[in-house]
Design a protein around this nucleic acid. Structure first.
Lengths: 242, 242
DNA sequence: AATTTTCATTTGTCTGACGTTTAAATGTCT
DNA sequence: AGACATTTAAACGTCAGACAAATGAAAATT
């Protein structure tokens, strides 16, 4: 691990990169303890503050965790699916909100990806996942449900569909797509009528899933995508009118 | 933005969270300048070092960028698709390598996601993307191509297919899936025969794409997935034997 | 008017210090 | 000997103050 003090980039960034590379390459393995901050500052010939800034960078990426006290220190963290979910969701959300991605584009991406789960979900769906889907549909029929509650339930329903594939990698990849859409979805004010329509489609999806009919799920997702896009266009038109 | 000095978590983590929330919520907009480190340390009633650690955390997530000198400071960063790609790829790669994800599972996820692009790619493919695909196929037929070169070309081919959808959100979501597979793919030593077989499938995909036949792309991707999985199992069997 | 110089501001880094946490080592009592 | 309390050393978390380097604006000069 070499550091170039004359480089234009920050020392803390260089040190973070060196350690990150060591982790990615496997030179540092999971749960291995890094040298103490004091040792590293000697090794890299920088101050402890600089080493700490580097470590904080890595901690922000969940690459390491730190523990205080004797025999504490920084340890290589086993990146869990939950942590990866979380990071992907914040990244995706920011990416969409900061780059003026159209509702159309985001919608297309989301349903295209979700459609990919259909065959696997139909094949492997468990009673548990089906029960979650049914429960969310039930919640969606409650008259008093707030807009926030509706959106959350919508996300939960689709998450159940994705999780039904039994493939954690797939779930992880789709978490960003589904959850990052929520803020955009929140912009649509759902009328009672549109909710009814969507619930009907959700029911169809659950039925197809129950029957192990992957093609049916794909078709209904297509309908749902078309309807959602129509709602989005309607909203855009309304906004232009005001 | 409130900070609790008595909380169990680090002050720098709390401050980072406060600023991150402000960015995500839109209270701080793109290119807006944050207060100087000195001002923040007064505002949060912590030392400058603590503020700096918080800022480094945010910089690691590409949420802010910093500039030195007068009228410099920390600015809210517009998260670009490139940066998001990069982050997703490192996260995905680590997730796969640290969680003992089976080749089978990763393969399934990858091809399921890629399959989702087929209809859109068939519909919108441009001459540019087709040319890239053909060029990569040509490179893959060169006898002297190293294993690394082969893998890189394979990734480039599939990236072209994904990019052919013309949907940057979709490209972003799939970047992780495709690129994170590379290290796993590298574990398979490609024989000349398997290369030949894969090139043939790539050619079929390019042809289907050319013809605008989305269903054909899906079918061939299915074949490719099956063949890749078979190679993986063969490799696993060989490893068990030794 | 164009160029150079000055200058204040801000980040990057260093030093040294102190508090807090933590687990191991030690000591004490039964 | 064994259970419990105490001490202690190691390590992180935070702080205060300092200096260097960069940088753009404003002032001075040609």
């Amino acid at each position: 691990m070499k550091i170039d003090p004359k480089s234009k980039t920050d020392l803390s960034a260089q040190i973070a990169k060196a350690i990150r590379d060591a982790i990615v390459s496997g030179a540092l393995i999971v749960d291995e303890r890094l040298p103490s901050e004091a040792e590293m500052s000697e090794q890299f010939e920088v101050s402890r503050a600089t080493v700490r800034e580097a470590l904080k960078r890595l901690a922000a990426q969940s690459l390491i965790r730190t523990q205080r006290g004797a025999f504490g220190g920084a340890f290589v963290n086993r990146l869990s699916f939950e942590e990866a979910y979380g990071q992907q969701i914040t990244t995706s959300t920011l990416l969409l909100s900061m780059n003026a991605v159209s509702f159309e584009t985001a919608c297309e991406a989301r349903f295209a990806l979700e459609r990919a789960c259909a065959p696997l979900a139909a094949e492997r769906r468990s009673a548990d996942h089906l029960a979650t889907m049914r429960a969310e549909i039930f919640r969606q029929t409650q008259p008093g449900l707030s807009d926030e509650g509706w959106c959350a339930s919508d996300v939960a329903f689709h998450r159940a569909l994705v999780d039904a594939t039994g493939n954690p990698v797939l779930s992880y990849q789709l978490a960003g797509a589904v959850e990052a859409m929520q803020p955009l979805m929140n912009m649509i004010t759902f009328t009672a009528r549109s909710r009814e329509r969507i619930v009907a489609l959700h029911e169809q999806i659950a039925d197809h899933c129950d029957a192990g009919d992957g093609t049916g799920i794909e078709a209904t997702l297509g309908d749902l995508a078309a309807y959602t896009r129509a709602l989005g266009q309607e909203m855009a038109a309304k906004r232009r009118a005001t």
